[in-house]
Structure formats: C-alpha cells, structure tokens
Simulated assay, not measured.
Amino acid sequence: MRLPRVKPEHAPHRLGDGSVRLGGVLYGIASEIADADGWAWAALTLMDGTRSPAEIAAELRSRFAGLSAEEADEVVATLIGSGHVEEAAPGPCEALSEREKERYSRSRDYFRWVDVTPRDHGWEPQVRLKNAGVLVLGLGGTGSHVAWSLAASGVGRLHLVDPDVVELSNLNRQVLYTEADVGRPKAEVAAERLRAVNSEIEVTASAARVDGPAGLARLVDGFDVLALCADHPREPGGIRTWANRVCSVAGIPWVSGGYDGPLVSVGVFGPGGPCFECVRAGIPPRPGADYAWPGVTGASAGISGQLVAHDVVALITGLMVTPPGYFHGLTLLDPDEHVYAHYPSRADCEFCS
C-alpha cells in the first residue's frame, strides 16, 4: 500500500482506558486495540493518505523515543493489514468500464465499509460479481426479488428458471410482473425486465420444471451459486434435499429462502460447512412449518428475497462473515425474535462429514 488512509466509515475512537476502536460497533467488522503507549493512535492519525508507510513509521520513531524501527514498522504493517485502512491513491481497475464504475459506485462504498481485506483498488468485490454466474430457480415471491437484486448488483450472468405463468394473485408480491403480464411465462417476463434493469449483464431464461436431482444437476452445471427460491416438491425429501445433494457433489454453494407467515428464514450452505440435511436434522420439528404457506405480503416476500440476494452476493464477493451451514432470519411480529440455527455435521453424513 503506497498511501494508506483510514476508511472514513472506520474512523478511530479513543476509549477511556486508552484503547482504540476501529469500525464502530458493527458485528464482524469492529476492532479494539490495546494501546497503552499511544503508538496505534498516533499511527492512525498519520494515515490520512498523504504519507507512505515508511514515512509514517519514521514519524512514529520521532515522536516516541523508545520505539525501535522494527516496532514502528510492525505497528504500521499491522494497522494496514487490519482492513480498516485503504489506498488513498488506488491503481486503475481495467476490469470495469467507466460506465460500470458510475453504476456501481454506491456498491463500492458499501464493500469498502464491510470488507476488512486490504485491496489494491477497492473494486475487487464488484469484479467478482461481474465474473460470476448465478442460477435463480423459482421466480415467485422470493425469487422475483432475488433476481432483481442480483441483476441490479451486477452479477454478470443470470439464468432464470420457472415453469409457471403470471397469475393475478401473484401481483401482491412478485415485483417483476404487471397486470399486462398475466398469462405470460414468468421466466420470459422476468428476463425482459432484468435486461431493462441492467443491459450490461447476461440474462437467460427457461420455463423448465425440475423433476428430480438429475435435472437439477444439469441446470446448476457451470454456475457459481444456486439461489433456490422454488418450494416444490416439499420436504422431507423435496427440492431442498435435491439441492443439498446435487450442490454438495458439485461443490457449489447455495442459498434458499422462504416464509411461513411472518417468519422469514434463509439457509446458506456450501463447501466448508454442515449441509442442509445435517442442519435441518438438528432443528426441533414444528408442526405445520414448511416455509411455503400462501400467506404473504409484498413486504414479507421482499425481505425474504433480499436476504437471499444478500447472502448470494456475500458468497460471491467473499464477504460472508459466517461460514456456510446455517439458517437465519427474523419474525416480523417480534423484532427481538431473530432466527439462527447452526448444527454440526452428522458423523454418518456422506456429503459434509
């Protein structure tokens, strides 16, 4: 890093005990540094984008007589490596056009905030999205929001699959369709809408019906992530089980979301974590819960879809705080009732143990 600068969202704060906090109070981002001698605080105040690491270390040595050259260099290197510091004069990013940089400028600001990996120019997460391919299976209440959000976020290749046509009862929650679309294939309409949202990505569509694991395996081949938003056939042994087994064999992460009335939940699964069947086996059964009941509003479907899209983006960009292998979500009628379920792999699981 040539000219380190503390990210504005991570501005340091000195606490009463002399320690330094960076990154505010955000879970998974904030850091607290014990700083009895004041070295870290001084180094951070010098990281304003006008000095090189060597110049910052030299200034530290001039301020603290007892600080050796090795110690000063280590302080600077540690702070740069923390991810709370960015390059003030980043190099060029040739993978994105100027139009793309303007389109995704707010996304870059977001990634800069949540990404604690030192980067060359800050566009790395967006480039990963551009190079990624996502299969969106199911374009209903959850899937229509997922597809729109991924297209707007700049996922380079989207393939949309849904066998159904638009019905009037879909329009209370399925954001991609209008009254004029009633009777038309959902996949066809969704592809048209998303190409209008973002002409710089590739959007393809199919009205195929997935009738078994073999068909699903053919669909996911060549994609980086599966966004599973279909709910038939139901569990046990339904489409989520098919996805679990197919994606485990293929080494492809997948995200699935849905709603059970006011309960909205999302599952994130993939290499490196317990599989769907293991996590599901650890959750106590709740009579009647199948995450596919018809009661839904535009808001509850939107929350479901946006949570799925968020997790897909986090997987692609590498900004997933928690490794795959869990369900999470919320109960809309009780803000304090958060959903989180994580159970270890079963010893006899052939997919993840």
Rank of each mutant, 00 (worst) to 15 (best):
M1F: 12
R14G: 07
L15H: 12
G16Y: 08
V25K: 13
G28I: 05
A30F: 00
I33S: 07
G38T: 09
W39N: 08
W39P: 09
W39A: 12
A58L: 07
L60H: 08
L60N: 05
S62P: 04
A72Y: 04
D73N: 15
E74P: 02
E74A: 14
T78K: 12
G83R: 00
G83Y: 06
A89L: 12
P90M: 04
P92C: 01
E94R: 15
A95V: 10
A95C: 08
E98R: 08
E100L: 06
E102I: 11
D109W: 11
Y110D: 10
F111M: 04
D115I: 03
V116Q: 12
R119I: 02
G122W: 07
G122M: 06
G122L: 07
W123F: 08
W123V: 04
P125K: 00
P125V: 00
A132G: 06
V134H: 07
L137R: 02
G138I: 09
G141D: 10
T142D: 04
G143R: 06
V146T: 04
S149E: 14
S149I: 03
A151R: 00
A152F: 09
A152G: 01
L158N: 07
L160R: 05
L160A: 06
L160C: 08
V165S: 14
S169Y: 10
L171P: 14
T178N: 13
G183Q: 13
A190P: 11
A190C: 12
A191H: 01
R193D: 11
A196D: 14
S199G: 15
I201W: 11
V203N: 04
V203R: 01
V210N: 05
D211F: 07
D211H: 07
G212M: 04
A214P: 00
A214C: 00
L216F: 09
R218N: 03
L219P: 10
V220Q: 11
D221R: 14
V225L: 01
D231I: 01
H232R: 15
P236I: 03
G238V: 07
G238T: 06
R240W: 12
T241I: 03
W242K: 10
R245G: 15
C247G: 09
C247E: 05
S248E: 14
V249W: 13
P253H: 02
V255A: 05
S256A: 15
V264I: 03
S265R: 02
S265M: 11
V268G: 09
F269G: 10
G273L: 02
G273A: 09
C275W: 00
C275H: 04
F276S: 11
A281I: 02
G282L: 05
P284L: 06
G288D: 03
A289K: 13
A289M: 15
D290H: 13
A292L: 05
V296R: 08
S304A: 15
G305L: 07
Q306Y: 09
V308P: 06
A309G: 13
H310L: 14
V312L: 04
V313T: 10
A314W: 07
G318T: 02
L319C: 14
P323Q: 03
H328L: 11
H328C: 12
P335L: 06
P335W: 02
D336A: 15
E337R: 15
A341I: 00
A341W: 10
Y343V: 09
P344L: 05
S345M: 11
R346Y: 08
R346C: 06
R346N: 08
C349Q: 09
E350K: 10
E350P: 13
F351P: 01
F351R: 08
C352F: 04
